[in-house]
Simulated scan of single mutants.
Amino acid sequence: MDHIALTVPDLEHAVAFFVDHFGGECVFSDIGGHHLAFYVDHIDAAFDCVTAIPDVVVMEGPNGVAADVLVAGQRWFYFPTPRGMQLELTSCTGDGFYQGLPAAQVAASSDEWR
């Protein structure tokens, strides 16, 4: 898993809760959106696999970000599951994407997408 995005009624209160009680760190905050994100090594292969799933409609993607932002090289796409849960698959084309960020300790990836 790469990250979870939650919609909360009071962002400052929610961040303080996780920082104060669980040692969390707010790396990035955005208004709106809720989803579960998984990191994949090959975003284009993941996109092809997901678009082949019956009853799954992929939103635009894979998308990318500008070269001058913290997550430069990141590519992603969103899609709802048939039951409506919002998912994101994300990947990074460059080395050191997570270096210095909490996710630097991410588990080693598999050779296969599934």
Rank of each mutant, 00 (worst) to 15 (best):
V27R: 11
I43N: 03
F97Q: 00
D68I: 06
P9Y: 11
Y39R: 11
D48S: 12
M85I: 15
C49V: 12
L87E: 00
Q99P: 01
A107R: 09
A14M: 14
L6K: 10
Y98A: 11
A67K: 11
W113E: 07
C49L: 13
T7H: 13
L89W: 01
T51H: 10
I31R: 15
L89S: 02
H42W: 07
A108E: 12
E60W: 02
V40T: 10
A45M: 07
E12D: 15
E88A: 00
M1E: 11
H35N: 10
L89R: 00
D2S: 15
D30W: 11
D55L: 05
H21W: 11
Q86E: 04
S110F: 05
G33Q: 07
D10L: 14
Q74I: 02
H13C: 15
L36N: 11
G61Q: 01
H35F: 09
V65Y: 07
A104G: 02
D68F: 05
V50H: 00
M1W: 15
F22N: 08
V8T: 13
H21Q: 14
D30Q: 14
V50C: 01
F18E: 10
V57S: 09
Y39A: 10
H21R: 14
D48Y: 04
G64P: 02
V27P: 09
H42V: 04
Y39E: 13
L36K: 08
Y78R: 03
D48R: 12
G94C: 04
Y98Q: 03
F18S: 10
P102I: 01
D111N: 09
V19K: 13
A103V: 07
E60L: 04
A37Y: 08
R114W: 12
D111V: 06
G100N: 05
A107W: 04
G73R: 01
T7I: 13
E25N: 11
G73V: 03
R75E: 04
D111C: 04
Q74L: 05
C92E: 05
F77E: 04
N63Q: 12
A104K: 06
P54K: 09
T93Y: 02
V56P: 02
L70V: 08
V8Y: 14
H13F: 14
F38P: 06
I53A: 06
R114H: 11
P9F: 10
V56N: 05
H34K: 15
E88Q: 06
G96I: 02
L6C: 15
P62N: 04
F38V: 14
F97W: 08
A14R: 08
F79I: 00
V19Q: 15
R75A: 01
G33R: 08
F97A: 07
L87A: 01
R83M: 07
A67T: 11
D30Y: 15
G24S: 15
A37W: 08
G32E: 13
I31E: 13
F97E: 00
V15M: 12
I43H: 03
G100M: 05
V65Q: 04
